[in-house]
């Protein structure tokens, strides 16, 4: 049960949030010019690696706002919490 520090509401228990999957996946603007494989990549393919994962969360049962976090998939340590649209933070290796 993660403890997530909502940028607007402060630390709250995971059950108030919904995970929106991998972050920093921009919706293609020129999709009509993309081939099926490239579009399929955007729609379906997500990284599932061991280590630091950048993902989107929404404080659905609180302020309703989306935000980004960096989370270790090994320890579930939350390494950063930042706003939607911000660049990925630099993290120590």
């Amino acid at each position: 049960m993660l403890l997530l520090d909502c940028p607007w509401c402060g630390p709250r228990s995971e059950e108030e949030f919904a995970c929106g999957g991998e972050g920093h996946i921009a919706r293609p603007l020129n999709s009509e010019n993309m081939d099926d494989a490239a579009w399929g990549d955007y729609v379906f393919m997500r990284s599932n690696h061991k280590g630091v994962y950048f993902e989107r969360w929404r404080h659905g049962l609180g302020c309703g706002r989306w935000f980004n976090i960096a989370r270790s998939t090994i320890s579930h340590e939350i390494l950063a919490i930042y706003h939607v649209g911000d660049a990925k933070p630099e993290l120590p290796e």
Binding site: G20, A26, R56, R58, G60, G64, R65, W66, V84, G85
Partner: peptide, 13 residues
């Protein structure tokens, strides 16, 4: 509503 909010907030702010 969740769907609309997610696009408003994250992709088309």
């Amino acid at each position: 509503l969740d769907w609309l909010e997610s696009w408003c907030q994250t992709e088309w702010p």
